[in-house]
């Protein structure tokens, strides 16, 4: 269960990032993951692990491989090489491990002529009998009155809220949230951030991506920084800030990016 943080190998003048040791158990272990799309290398030997009951932010510029990494964990993308273990299951053709994952894609797209309630019951049907559902967000977003409208009449924000409800609904041990606050108003963003934090308290592991650094500062325990398909930093968020000598995460990341780009 040891998964060493990776050091940026090049260039030599990049800020030195010491190896840190973590003792926490991992919910996701990624080993030497490689993937390319038509000659374009998207992930190049990525190894990392996501700790249990921690919030890990996967960050990096556009096309750094963030979504490919997440999709590989979800089994949506088939890696060319490497190994992914989620909650003790090796991700291959097996699909049942996804029972333990709540996924919130960037935007909510549902069959347009179904009502929100039908979308929820479809997912309940697919998941089969489960323990008590977590419908907290349904109330927090005041979504219940919208549930009997057909999806195509719902606003983008409302769909995104429904999207969030679905991710948390089955109380999964692992949440994968792709830009969870994108398209949400500040109130709803606040609700979802609170929810994420509460989930961590109750032992849920969270992997999220976000472009909003303040959000990561607010939520993330650890940060995985990807650049051009490789991990440039992997460790506690505070370490990143400390090591780069910048109090603000945004600046710390900027330093990493410059270092990687030069």
């Amino acid at each position: 269960m040891t998964s060493p943080e990776r050091l940026p190998l090049e260039p030599p003048d990049a800020p030195a990032i010491p190896r840190l040791v973590t003792s926490t158990a991992a919910i996701v272990e990624v080993t030497d993951l490689g993937k390319s799309f038509g000659g374009l290398t998207v992930l190049d030997g990525v190894s990392t692990s996501f700790a249990v009951a921690r919030i890990t932010a996967v960050v990096g510029p556009n096309a750094a491989g963030k979504s490919t990494l997440i999709k590989a964990i979800l089994g949506l993308v088939r890696p060319d090489r490497g190994r992914i273990v989620v909650n003790g299951h090796v991700v291959t053709r097996d699909w049942d491990y996804r029972r333990g994952i709540g996924y919130m894609p960037q935007a909510g797209h549902f069959p347009e002529n179904l009502t929100g309630r039908e979308v929820l019951s479809m997912l309940k049907h697919l998941r089969g009998p489960s323990a008590e559902l977590d419908e907290e967000l349904l109330d927090a977003f005041a979504l219940r009155p919208e549930l009997d409208k057909q999806v195509r009449t719902l606003s983008g924000g409302t769909r995104q809220k429904l999207n969030a409800v679905i991710a948390f609904l089955f109380r999964p041990p692992l949440l994968i949230l792709d830009e969870p606050t994108a398209g949400l108003d500040p109130v709803a963003s606040g609700i979802i951030k609170d929810k994420i934090l509460r989930c961590r308290e109750s032992g849920t592991s969270v992997v999220l991506t976000s472009h909003i650094m303040s959000e990561i500062e607010e939520l993330a325990d650890s940060v995985v920084f990807l650049l051009e398909g490789r991990i440039r930093f992997d460790g506690p968020r505070l370490d990143l800030q400390r090591l780069t000598g910048h109090q603000s995460l945004e600046r710390a990341i900027a330093v990493l990016m410059q270092g990687g780009a030069s």
Partner: peptide, 11 residues
């Protein structure tokens, strides 16, 4: 997109 969403389920 909905297919992606469904594929993230145990299906």
């Amino acid at each position: 997109e909905f297919i992606v969403m469904l594929l993230a389920q145990p299906v």
